[in-house]
Design a protein around this nucleic acid. Structure first.
Lengths: 193, 193
DNA sequence: CCCCCTATAGAACACATTGTTGCGTAACAG
DNA sequence: CTGTTACGCAACAATGTGTTCTATAGGGGG
């Protein structure tokens, strides 16, 4: 028993429109009425698919927040691996829908457990990627095992997000170079009590 | 000609209620009707003070976002100064209204220039505080002048905000110790090309 | 102390958004 | 071909938004 093609078509059309509205006008404007106006789909039909405004917004969020796959690279020197990985993250923030809606997900997360989950899973993947890079460096003996990897991962990821979401500063190649330098130095310098 | 005390009283009462609603239920629920219901102030009166929903919400935001004054301390060792300063910032994020509404300001900033301004000014103060600490350390000769101060400031501040707003992780004394250690190490370790 | 000014309360109004319901129609599946 | 199901449409209530009018109560200047 295959799924009714009408269901699929409606869902697809509506979600496409919802995403466009989300990115263009913000979460507040993602509404059954607005999607109906854009797509021509009846409002009651939309309500049948997404019973309330929240579920509609959540659906739009989830569509966009799907993380891009990050092909692993843990073979080169630490600096090289980190640079490549962070450039991917930076690119996602700069050039994908995720970068545009992330602030709104962050805000939603302050009152909404669902949004917190979206972020938590998203970040879990990011942390795992960076962690793999550091682990490989330790295995190679490039850095010692006693460096505070957890903290370095956090700093590595926090900086681009902070610049993008909070400071609204640019994320360009020049900044990335400096950032990677700093993290690498930190990973390789001896802790002084 | 003094200002009518009724104006002042109304504004005060309404803004207090608006702030409570903002923190408890989110920006969406800050509405003339809601404030009216809580305070007993007539809806028409509220509209006379704040002509539309946006101005009411902005007013509530601005009330809360007023930064706490940070008394400067730049006399001790770098580690001590930094620890003290960041503990103040951390405390603000943990225990003041600002920590609760910051996510919503961040989200608003993605589509609203007004909110971007609020954040920019807020961060400008924070950066200046940290910068003063580093400058003093350089003057004392505790660190060399060639450390990338700009980046260190950003890392120092980015980490607590990232943890609080995005990861929703705890900001406790133990974490702060580690964080300060890391930043200090970074400030004092020799760059390796 | 009194009068004028003005802020407030209250009600009525138009309008948009949110969400529900019932019904006729059209499309899909077996 | 027939039963099921999704769709569009219209009507509906409830809430939020914003305006306008009038009556009243409170404060300040003379």
């Amino acid at each position: 028993m295959k799924e009714d093609p009408r269901l699929i078509a409606t869902r697809q059309t509506a979600l496409d429109a919802a995403q466009k509205i989300l990115m263009a006008d913000g979460v507040l404007h993602v509404t059954h009425g607005a999607v109906s106006k854009v797509t021509g789909i009846s409002r009651s039909t939309l309500y049948r698919h997404w019973p309330d405004a929240r579920s509609l917004r959540d659906a739009a969020f989830r569509c966009i927040a799907t993380p891009p796959n990050i092909p692993p690279k843990t073979d080169g020197p630490l600096r090289s691996d980190l640079h490549w990985l962070l450039s991917v993250l930076m690119g996602a923030l700069n050039d994908t829908p995720w970068g545009q809606i992330a602030p709104q997900v962050v805000a939603a997360a302050s009152t909404d457990a669902e949004a917190r989950l979206v972020i938590a899973e998203f970040m879990k993947d990011r942390f795992a990627s960076v962690e793999a890079v550091f682990s490989a460096a330790i295995d190679r003996g490039e850095i010692t095992a006693d460096v505070p990897v957890e903290q370095l991962i956090e700093l590595a990821i926090a900086a681009p997000y902070f610049r993008k979401l909070i400071r609204h500063a640019t994320l360009d190649a020049g900044w990335l170079d400096q950032h990677v330098n700093l993290i690498c130095n930190l990973a390789k310098c001896e802790p002084r009590s």
